[in-house]
Nucleic acid binder design. Sequence first.
DNA 1: AACTCGTGGCG
DNA 2: TCGCCAAGAGT
Length: 363
Amino acid sequence: MSEMPAPVLDAGEFQRRLLDWFDRDGRHDLPWQRERTPYRVWVSEIMLQQTQVTTVIPYFERFMAHFPTLAELAAASQDEVLHLWTGLGYYARGRNLHKAARRVMEEHGGELPVNSLEALAGLPGIGRSTAGAIIAQSTGRRAVILDGNVKRSLSRLHAVEGWPGRPVVERRLWALAEHYTPEHRVADYTQAIMDLGATLCRRGTPECGRCPFADACVAHARGEQRRFPESKPRKALPTRTTLMLMLQDAGGRVLLEQRPASGLWGGLWSLPQFDDLAALRCWLDVHAPGALLHPAWPAFSHVFSHFRLDITPQPARIDGLDSVGEARCWYDPGSPGRIGLAAPVKALLASLAPFALTAPEPS
DNA sequence: AACTCGTGGCG
DNA sequence: TCGCCAAGAGT
């Protein structure tokens, strides 16, 4: 392939060095390495997308305790799934996992189609790399992965220029990953190449002194490890502003609304949000005409990857609300229900006690 | 092809 | 404190 840079090592030599290193210094005790069933590997791979191992572990344990089998996951409600996903982020992963479980029950007899890369990658939330990881880890059959760790390691080893998000660069990295992937010990190999990137060939401070490929690494020879992979060209973060209405009833319960099925915090429950104070007051006139507004709390900011969210809580209190429909509920912070909450909303609710205590009674 | 989607760790 | 970004995929 003209797409592929000239390999700096013979594939067999690369595999021997990597697996020897993995046997000594790799990770062998991760929770999803215990019983390598397709279902457990699948759930772990979804949670690990753009998320670090130490973050995932407690979520994975809780998830598997609640849904030990794919059938039980498929039988659960989306609210239950998102509840267990609360705080993990990228909630489309949870929604897609749930959707895919139901599809597997309907179309694949309840078993993940691990014999077909195409069928696997056709399921929601499973792309090319995740499909490869599931096959390699759970069946041991040859499959290629290309995650952030592999991209970083291979781009340094070959000094691949350009941001890996560019299709041209990504194709080169896929070709290299394909070249080095062995026929045997594929489960260990895929774990090993990820461990190398996670523990040695790290982004900030790579430990080239312990790396089995230091003598062959082009970036290392040039003393330019930090320059690879090239970083994404970034734009300034835009700022969005939202008002969150904190409406309590006499019992201290808080009104929540379910957000649209897609987009930011899709399917999660949140305080009702408004673009401005006028919209909020209009809503109150319709749904809660007797509501008593308190002085606004200090605004706070929440920084996401692509924008900064300025949140201004607007506390209010009311004795009753005329309509509490399907996408609206009273939520008791004292005995929280099993629904999905975005992290900032959860934190807001956790800090609610002072407001409940100091709220003046309607006169 | 470029943009969107969360949260937490790190230098 | 702050910008960068991590076991990517969907649109």
